[in-house]
Amino acid sequence: MGRERLFNLAVILALLAVPLLALALDEPFVITLATKVAILALAGVGLNIALGLGGLVSLGHAAFFGIGGYAMGILAAHAQNYEPLFSWPFLFEGSNQMPLIWLVAVLASAAAALVIGALSLRTSGVYFIMITLAFGQMLYYFAISWSAYGGEDGLSIWVRNEMPGLNTLIPIQFFGVCFALLCGALLFSARLAGSGFGLALSAARQTEERVETVGLQPFKLRLVAFVISGAITGLAGALFADLNRFVSPTMLSWHTSGEIMIFVILGGVGRLYGPVVGAAVYILLEHLLGGISEYWQIFLGLLLLGMVLFARGGLIGALLGREVAHD
């Protein structure tokens, strides 16, 4: 087993061990923190497929995170008010069942990613960053003015949604759900990176004209990557809304896009477990330094600056060095 795989295993076991320990010591708040790490890491795993593998610097992933959040919020709000979402052409009721909510969140964010990607991917570099940012902000302002679903105040859900066979109101059980989804996404992401699609996508990031010369379409590769990426981040959004039992336009704002990107950069762009490490460090800093000063993000900024200047591979890069070629 290579060093990076060993490190990854340690990271994921630690993320599992901390809430279990907290359960034993009766510290529910720590479990909530760990759940937040798992969810935000999941959002980062999504972004990492576009950013790390595809080289697509999207500053609009809050759009998918927020769409996932609103998918949960809208479905659950209708369920708790016993109002159908729509009754034509078929009756569509709200729902408080997580699997259905996830499905809607994934499909909605994938559809949004398809549209946003198809338009944004005609540009590259700074223009791509700006146009994804613009789409994210469009949705943000739309949500603010969408009074049917809370507008600026957002939507509160009274009871956490249900998962068949589990009691999601118990923090450790909800953590388990999020952790399992994170592991699934990591596994999927690893397989994707090693697949033919992953090889071609990664090549398109390194040398576009080569990919064209062997007869593959960089645009199509990137669009597919963007849709997969958006869908995973959307799933994370649905979980995040469920964690807080609240969804608001903040989830769609460009700060959120920036935060998801920070997880990826902090941990290591393109490193499979980069977002997990990044999200964990981010939440730890927020919790530890946030207690000292509300300006804790100054320290985060310094850390990020150090990472970008001295360790291009993020924390994992600084610890383990350059990634070796996949075998």
């Binding site: 697949s195 033919g196 699609f197 992953g198």
Partner: peptide
């Protein structure tokens, strides 16, 4: 990568290329 592009089959999302 060259062989993959030329083979004309779909790229695959799961199998180790």
């Amino acid at each position: 990568l060259g062989a993959l592009g030329a083979c004309g089959k779909s790229l695959g999302f799961f199998r180790n290329v």
